[in-house]
Every structure is written in C-alpha cells, then in structure tokens.
Design a protein around this nucleic acid. Sequence first.
DNA 1: CTACGGATTTTCT
DNA 2: GAAAATCCGTAGT
Length: 211
Amino acid sequence: MHLLSRAFLARPARLVARDLLGCTLVRDFNGRRLSGRIVETEAYLGVKDAGAHTFGGRRTARVESMYMQAGTAYVYFTYGMHYCFNVVCGEIDEPVAVLIRALEPTEGLDVMRHLRGEGGSMRARRLKDRDLCSGPAKLCQALAIGPPLNRHDLLSGHTLWLEPGEKVADRQIARTARIGLSTETVWKTRPLRFLLWHNEHVSVPLRPART
DNA sequence: CTACGGATTTTCT
DNA sequence: GAAAATCCGTAGT
C-alpha cells in the first residue's frame, strides 16, 4: 500500500483539488477492498469563501474536522438523507478542504451495487457502473462512508485512505463553477471544480457551449 | 436526452 | 423555522 503524503495534502485546497484527480480512494469494508479513481473534485477555500461551511470563521461541532490537520476526513450530513466526503488540506486551524464529487469505480463494484441499494426490497434497481459513484453522496453510499469516518486520518492506512495514481496532464482537466451552491456572490461562479474531460463517471457532464 | 419536484432531518439562526 | 456542497423517479421532447 502506497499512501499519499501529508505534505501533498498540506497545500492550498485549489492545488490539492487539481492534483487529487487520478488518485485512488480506497475503503476497507469488512475485508473487501472498494476503490475508485478520483475524477471530480471541488476546492473550498475556508474563511473567505462564501460557498464554504467555514465562511467567516464559522466553527461549530459539525465543521470542527475542517480545522484539523491535512489528511483528516470531513464527513457531513445534508438534505436530510445524504453524506458528503471531504479531504481536509492546508495548515492546522486553516479550514480548507476538497470535496470528492465522483469516482470511476475500479474494485468491489459488486459490493458497491449492494450498498447503493440494487436488489433492495423496494424495487429491482439495475445500476450501471456510472451510477455507482457519480456524485458526492453516491460515492459515500457506495463506499459506506458515514459519521464514524468523520475526523478519520486518511493517512493512517486503514479503513479509508488515499493512494497516488498516474499523473493527469493539464489538457485532460476541465474547470467549472462549483455545483449546488446557493450563495449569490462571486464565489458561486469561480472555477473551483476540477474534472476529467470525456469521463462518463462525473456527477454533471460537461455541456457543449450553447449560443 | 433534459427538466422538475419531492424526499427527509440535521444544523444553525 | 428555514436552509441545505443531493438524489431519484416521473414526465416530456
């Protein structure tokens, strides 16, 4: 097992968000290895960022993990039913993080299908590979990421961790505004979302320019 | 394929 | 009491 380094993550969120593309997120789930290649991220720039939970230096119990050291997991609950997963970066007490928005699933797809609800009693869902991890809450469901993993150290090498991947060239990366923000400031439109061109596992596909 | 509305409950004001 | 870094099913083109 080769882990990412603390120094890699203890950098500005925008750089980490870009460089996490191509890396692998791995979950040990009851001895099964579930993993995926990171294909979409978003940077959240802390105190100054009106789109971030820590805007204005907000420091509540929920966001406490964002103030911890780089490599800490920040898992939060939203919309009454979903969890999202972030990699804390920057320095201690600097509440910046990268939201992992989509994975290209590579190992344990059968387990992911089960965790995503295929074959449940409600109805026979037939999930395509691209439906498993193509969104921040979907990948949390697929990798069984929930409250117990909030504040987990992603460099500990057990339960949930990050591994380096093949380098991704700049020309393979697209940038857009972040998804789902409600703020009506300049922070809503800044290009802090990073994703791979031509990848079918992203949460919101890139659209051809419209007239 | 796109567009829209409902689900559901923690968190913070 | 209102909002929320979302998802899913349904309806329409």
